[in-house]
Design a binder for these strands. Structure first.
Lengths: 147, 147
DNA sequence: CACTTTAATGAGAATGAATCTCAACTGCAC
DNA sequence: GTGCAGTTGAGATTCATTCTCATTAAAGTG
């Protein structure tokens, strides 16, 4: 958390943006818990402690966190944008259960390299990539069988 | 197109759904041109020939085409859901230019297998997966350098 | 520390993609 | 052809996200 905070502060400074209270509160909330979140959940979480941080500010701050490289946008889930931590986390693959919304992660090594090779061939400059699969998690498979 | 149509008809029958004129018009429009589309573009395209097909019907029909396996949902682009053909097309990777919206495709062989292996480990049943990268296409890289 | 400038914030309004409603319509089985 | 359940069109509605604007607060300067 300490390091994230310093990186964030430096990022803001480099962009001539102010290190404000709401921006700090939101950043701390992001790194407090989950590795995946959407703005709505984040808003609820922040509201428990800070009644006066508005949705708009969260929507304005999350893209800053993305630009700073601390988090990245992930696949959508239930028609909401979701985000995940990147700082200190390896690239990974998401298995998203279409029934219960559960997100299962799985590491991989080779895919990143493959993608980079292909991008180079197409002269495409990657800023971010996503790899995700939708389907049913173990539990939901069992439940479906029964019914 | 013939085969798509037959597959679609069979699919509808198997689900006790009717093979209606709007469902045919929409399906034909989908396979007429693009391999990538969003509902808005599809609506405009259909409107040129058929003034009385409504947006709602397109929004209702596209999920049927997905369920039938003829198309699948792809990564979002410019805050709209986009879809791509699957029938007769191999799996591929998308490079999406965040500047001009261009979608560049690239084939791959190994990723699918890797994903399936990982899914099996996690006992996850995949119905569909996506692999996409955002960044800048060749043109937009050049333009950015100049300005 | 007070001052000044300029960006950032909160609250609610606005936007826009996607979904829903419901009366009118149409496949299709008989 | 008849009947009926599933479909449709049009517009209303929803809901995530973005915008507006008056108010507030960083943070450099003297």
């Amino acid at each position: 958390m300490k390091k994230e905070r310093e990186l964030y502060r430096e990022f803001l400074k480099s962009k001539d943006l102010k290190f404000t209270k709401p921006r700090l509160i939101i950043m701390e909330a992001v790194f407090e818990n989950h590795e995946h979140f959407n703005v709505d959940d984040l808003y609820e979480q922040i509201r428990k402690k800070h009644k006066n941080v508005s949705r708009a500010t969260i929507y304005r701050t999350v893209p800053l966190l993305v630009e700073s490289g601390l988090i990245k946008q992930s696949l959508r889930c239930e028609s909401k944008d979701i985000y995940e931590h990147t700082y200190g986390h390896e690239n990974h693959l998401h298995f998203i259960c279409v029934n219960c919304g559960k997100i299962i992660e799985s590491g991989f090594n080779d895919v990143a390299e493959l993608i980079n090779q292909l991008a180079e061939k197409k002269k495409f400059k990657i800023s971010e990539y996503n790899l995700g699969a939708r389907g049913l998690c173990e539990n939901c498979q069992k439940n479906k069988e029964q019914s």
